[in-house]
């Protein structure tokens, strides 16, 4: 398949945490994650807080030095040496539009920064034209160029963040929970904008979120993460209708349905207990401590992602 844009192979990201005076325990934020993203495709990545979604996104962009594993972009391995060139093709949109924009910079400078870093213009006039074009693209008024980020609303700030990511004309954007800090009406605007941009520019997204409905709306395929591992990966509709992994099932059963009759009649799968600390991972399958189907085998071995037909991957022995 030549239309694979990004391939992540067995990515591991461990952070050493000082647990004693001399002792350091690795915190396995991401523990062996593999997936691919095609050109112009959107892969949704869901999971609860602290399961390593954001870390996956940042490790791909080498904002963290991965402990192990490889990332291939367009067939070329992303390493510390060529990351500068890669950052022209891969960009990121951050979660919190309030803290991800420098309060000392005007919108013009924020959007123009990638242009400055990669020397993408020959004179001041060209720079300004490019910036205004980008602002136009994301629906910002060109009169806003000389204002500071804190003068804008959350939705507008996120548009600034998106315009900055688009400045270098990337093929791939990691969207790190780009809408979770926004209120619902603005969420819809921003998500629709993401979709429009994809149609126009053909960019691929890794769309990280914890809202299953949002992810289902925008993604072609969805990966579900739990404690640093992908437990299920399938087409968006397939995953929604036929979840295989018990964790995905419980997640889907918690999605609110705007119809009280259906909501009352369906069966909620309520997980018991808390997420185990990633410092002290359970043996075998990380989900076994909260899984209703757990058997002895689950404590001994860790299930791998296997194909259950139609590209539906799941990591569970019993389901």
């Amino acid at each position: 398949m030549s239309d694979i844009l990004l391939e992540v192979k067995d990515l591991k990201q461990h952070f050493p945490i000082r647990t004693g005076f001399f002792k350091k325990t690795p915190l396995k934020a991401v523990d062996g994650v593999s997936f691919t993203i095609g050109k112009g495709e959107t892969l949704g990545l869901v999971g609860e807080s602290g399961c390593g979604k954001t870390t996956v996104g940042r490790s791909i962009l080498r904002l963290y030095e991965p402990t192990a594993g490889q990332v291939f972009f367009d067939g070329e391995e992303v390493t510390g040496h060529n990351i500068q060139a890669m950052r022209k093709k891969m960009q990121m949109v951050f979660q919190d539009p309030y803290s991800s924009l420098d309060p000392r910079m005007t919108v013009e400078d924020i959007i123009g920064e990638p242009l400055d870093v990669h020397n993408l213009y020959s004179n001041k006039k060209e720079r300004r034209e490019k910036i205004l074009e980008l602002m136009n693209y994301v629906g910002l008024n060109s009169e806003h160029a000389t204002r500071y980020a804190h003068e804008f609303s959350g939705g507008q700030r996120q548009r600034i963040g998106i315009a900055r990511a688009l400045a270098v004309d990337p093929q791939f954007i990691v969207c790190d929970e780009p809408v979770s800090a926004l209120d619902v009406s603005i969420q819809a605007q921003v998500i629709n904008m993401f979709e429009e941009l994809q149609e126009k520019l053909g960019v691929a997204y890794l769309f990280i979120a914890h809202d299953l409905l949002v992810v289902h709306h925008i993604s072609k395929r969805i990966a579900v993460m739990y404690l640093g591992k992908i437990v299920e990966l399938a087409d968006a509709d397939e995953l929604n209708e036929n979840p295989l992994h018990p964790y995905t099932q419980s997640l889907l059963s918690a999605v609110p349905i705007p119809d009280p009759d259906i909501a009352r009649s369906r069966q909620r799968i309520v997980l018991e207990g808390d997420v185990p600390s990633p410092l002290h991972m359970p043996s075998g399958c990380p989900f076994r401590t909260r899984c209703q189907y757990a058997t002895e085998q689950c404590a001994l071995e860790c299930p791998t992602l296997t194909d259950r037909g139609n590209g539906h991957l799941s990591a569970c022995f019993n389901r």
Partner: peptide, 28 residues
């Protein structure tokens, strides 16, 4: 530790630029 510094890194800004353009103006 602010996210805008991480954002600048994700763009590909070098440490000297990050100190000069983001960190120093913010502790000015």
């Amino acid at each position: 530790e602010n996210e805008y510094v991480l954002a600048a890194r994700s763009i590909g800004a070098k440490p000297a630029r990050i100190i000069r353009k983001h960190i120093i103006p913010n502790c000015l």
